[in-house]
Design a protein around this nucleic acid. Structure first.
Lengths: 249, 249
DNA sequence: CAGTGGTCTAGACCACAGC
DNA sequence: CTGTGGTCTAGACCACTGA
């Protein structure tokens, strides 16, 4: 049975709702400081823990971000637009800086922590690439000095050992151009997109505040014969990305 | 009191980490009950609020879900695979039950709360559809009895007024087949994908536990002349979906 | 019914930011 | 230095679940 009277939400929720409303109404803008714990305590006559609870709601929603010793602030967004299909067209392979360029459209970016290792294939990589040994290129991308994406590209060891794909610099056009040189040019791609809360490790590597989900994109690249030649697992700060896919009926 | 070493994580975080590790290690499986507040209090000799804080970490990560009066449980996932491009191919329009079928692949689904309204176009809809008045079809989809998606399709009023698109039942093949009948068959689609934490309203309508992001898909459909004929805004429970996009190089 | 999580109070000490 | 958020304690009453 439904209760005929919808009972009132708890105080902390009403406060959070009111603050959220004020943010949406533009009373607080991106980066503005919100009323802090002390302000809420005196304004509403509540205990400290209750004020914290109200702010925690907004923080866990990703609407606000706390800064220690300073205050709680309205969160700012400036998403990167990432084109799913256009960016992987063959024409792109010839350009100097590989695929990543077509994402940021002029904004400065950088690559951190590039590591290249040979590993035993595990789980999804073993299944999709259908092999036992893989080369893995892991790296982190930053835009405007902020880390936004972790990526791990897996290649069948049989295919790429000895090629520039296992070197720091893959040369003009990136790994897809090199796969083409090896006679395994990708002709088809599949991307699987999920969203979830980050693991603590991802959260640390991307410097994510609480309340920020990650978008997980798992891309498989297939050569002409239908064999998978790359599996790229990407973890993106959801607040920094808009994924765009174009296709025809 | 012990004096903690400066750079050691706080107790609640260590407890959360340990529980998360136990879950990943398989000591707790999907749906299993985790140690509750009282258990953690006595096991670690901590106050109630601290035990709650530890559990809150897992809950906000979407790893665990609290059940009032019962306990805290390991969260279960059963994602639906949604095909981005294949599902919108022309062949699908002829089938009886519109596009939704190609998602669930056999699992029972239902549509709730279908409302059809004529409204003044606002924001994104006005811009993309380039019109002042729109018809909006809002509905909620459920799979296995659980709501998983909210959708709001916007159509230019000039185009669809008087057509079955403004009726409860759009007939075989759904709205895209009707747009074709009207001479505005969609030939191109763009989908924008974002992820974020839900608003309280979305959270309520989808029955989301804390720590569950939503995936926001905004699809524009374009007719032959390049004019947008539909803008469909979808909000999906991120724990229930995997989006798949296929495309060629 | 006893046990659970949900809310709330009134304190405390700490690390850190910014003046 | 003061004010901020971060952590923690020791209580309390409530609504709900499940035996």
């Amino acid at each position: 049975m439904e209760s005929p009277v919808p009972h009132e939400p708890p105080i902390y929720r009403r406060i959070a709702d009111r603050l959220r409303q004020a943010i949406l109404a533009g009373e607080f803008r991106d980066g503005d400081r919100l009323p802090g714990e002390n302000a809420l305590m005196s304004e509403y006559g509540i205990a400290r823990a209750t004020a914290r609870q109200a702010l925690a709601v907004l923080i866990n929603e990703g609407v606000a971000v706390p800064r220690r010793g300073s205050g709680v602030y309205v969160r700012q967004f400036r998403p990167i637009r990432r084109h799913g299909s256009r960016r992987l067209s063959r024409e792109q392979w010839g350009t100097g800086r590989a695929i990543w360029d077509s994402d940021t459209t002029g904004r400065p970016y950088s690559v951190d922590d590039l590591t290249i290792t040979r590993e035993a294939a595990a789980g999804e990589a073993a299944r999709v690439l259908d092999c036992d040994e893989v080369w893995v290129r892991r790296r982190r991308y930053s835009v405007d000095g902020r880390p936004v994406q972790l990526a791990a590209s897996h290649f069948p060891a049989d295919l790429v050992t000895g090629s520039p794909i296992t070197a720091q610099d893959t040369g003009p056009g990136g790994v897809y151009a090199r796969l083409r040189d090896l006679g395994h040019a990708p002709v088809h791609f599949t991307e699987e997109v999920r969203a979830r809360m980050p693991t603590p490790e991802e959260s640390a590597k991307l410097g994510l505040p609480a309340g920020t989900p990650v978008i997980e994109v798992c891309r498989s690249a297939f050569a002409g014969g239908g064999a998978a030649v790359e599996l790229n697992k990407m973890i993106m700060d959801a607040a920094s990305y808009v994924l765009q896919y174009d296709f025809d009926a």
